[in-house]
Design a protein around this nucleic acid. Sequence first.
DNA 1: AGCATCAACGTAAACGTTTACGTTGATGGA
DNA 2: TCCATCAACGTAAACGTTTACGTTGATGCT
Lengths: 328, 328
Amino acid sequence: MPTIKDVATMTGVSIATVSRVLNNQGGYSEETREKIESAAREINYYRNKMAASLKKSSARIIGLIMPNAPTLFYGDIVEGIETVASRNNYSVIITHAGEDGTNLMDCVSLMAERRVEGLIIASISLDEAVENQIQNLAFPVVLVSTKSNSGIPYIKVDDQTAAYDATTYLIKHGHRAVAIAGPNMQDTIAGLPRVAGYRQAMLDHNLPVESEWIHSGTFSFESGIEAMHAFFRLVHRPDAVFAVSDDTALGIMNTAGDLGLRVPDDIAVIGYDNTRVAEMANPALTVVSQPFFQMGAKAVQKLTTAIDSGQVIESEILKHRIFERRSV
Amino acid sequence: MPTIKDVATMTGVSIATVSRVLNNQGGYSEETREKIESAAREINYYRNKMAASLKKSSARIIGLIMPNAPTLFYGDIVEGIETVASRNNYSVIITHAGEDGTNLMDCVSLMAERRVEGLIIASISLDEAVENQIQNLAFPVVLVSTKSNSGIPYIKVDDQTAAYDATTYLIKHGHRAVAIAGPNMQDTIAGLPRVAGYRQAMLDHNLPVESEWIHSGTFSFESGIEAMHAFFRLVHRPDAVFAVSDDTALGIMNTAGDLGLRVPDDIAVIGYDNTRVAEMANPALTVVSQPFFQMGAKAVQKLTTAIDSGQVIESEILKHRIFERRSV
DNA sequence: AGCATCAACGTAAACGTTTACGTTGATGGA
DNA sequence: TCCATCAACGTAAACGTTTACGTTGATGCT
């Protein structure tokens, strides 16, 4: 590959001068700039950012670690990140941490070795080892749609009050037997808090909650199908359900239809996330939304200002919002 | 940041020895290996891949350029790429090319400057300038879900026969008035060929096609809504529609329902892509599928073998497949 | 004429690795 | 005892930039 040296000898100047014009730093005549630029074009020269980064010890790269399952909001969050990253002249390098973040430590190490200047970890819960590792990193880290209990800054919505608001919304619309579908009871970030919010809402409205109304599971479509079947078999059947994801909500809605129930007349359902499927569902799905694009964008903003200023990043709770559609 | 030099002086050996143990190259005693490794751990040393890449002139990075709209298959294609990339010790760096690939050239230049060893461009159609630029690149490039007419290798399904098969499928199921919704008539890659396939299928079965049955548009949900309304107003109303994307198909299905038509009884619909929404639709959407994950995976495989062997990459037509569900 | 100033360059060190090549001391065999 | 061999290192150059510092010649001013 051609180097700066090649274009220097071609034009009969020093490499310093070439470097100067390539970076618009001034200190050269208009004539030589033209000579250099045309020479560079001629031999198809691309500057070597690895070398430049090494010298400047700044690679202008932001790392992104994602969970392995490409959920529907995957694209939005990446897009949010990449948009403001590239606006600030950063590139983003992406890795998957394996099923439930197994090789997260390796991913973090890789990012450190690549000398990223900031790191985003999305939707993965960290164990103690990783939290320790992150504490000792030389660059800022921010969590997105997940949190930490050891001071690593995060950006997320408040799952508990979001769940509270969702079930309250159902209650306000006249439902008294509301169920929750899909929470993972091991998940202290997106599982338990949502159940807690659900419970609290029921309690605050003096509504009893039967244990069968809490149907744990995953965020998947299938999980919704399974939950709905379980609900259907109950003597005291719920008349509304709060699903932990849009996919799960769709599972609920579809099997409700299969079982002869009409949404929202016989059973109302509210989703969680507001992914693109929500508006495409039939009936369109009412949801509490997480602003994924904005989360990604905010994360990069925080990182870049932290990089520039050296200040620590503050966590931020983004506000969720209920999008009213047709499913309740 | 600590360097190899720091751990060398800490342990009283030369940087060469440190480098050797860090790369398991042999030529050192077990004792010094342990000393070096513990020293490295102690000062939180991460090797600098930028420096190593510079020296070895191999960055082990694969570039990925994506369209700006985060479609539903976005995640699958990225996941396919990243999975086999990381398996081969490559990192992937991702960029968006702006609305319909406006700054594609800049993206490609950026990739070249970052010294990626292979480049994937997904779902963006290239103009002549970019094709020229790509021809002169020093590393292999492969297109995914798009194609080129100047010899740049691509991986995609055959849009025309896929469209042919989709409409034939509808015809075989007893439909005679089948329409097509959403094709972009400017799009020579995913627009025109699909219309051609549709037309050919109709022709081969001696079915007339009315001009209003071809409702051009975009790949969006809204496009489906609009198309369905248009179809509904027709005197000779279609009894089946082939939609150019799953989103569009959903738009068709939903507004069909709103207009009092039942799917598939009054109107059948077949989608295109087989994104995650297809199985979650109600009724579940019959589609012709594009194997997005596999496309990404294949792309990286081709790149890595091209990188290792220096051979040129051959284009490949992946076979589509019809997933029968409930919408026809 | 003499001097300062400045535009327009050139020189060379440095960034943190990798690696070809050289060195050393111990070991074994004849 | 002498030599070859080899494990276990060390030396130093190189990768392609950036940049502090130095140089040169022209220009303007007094």
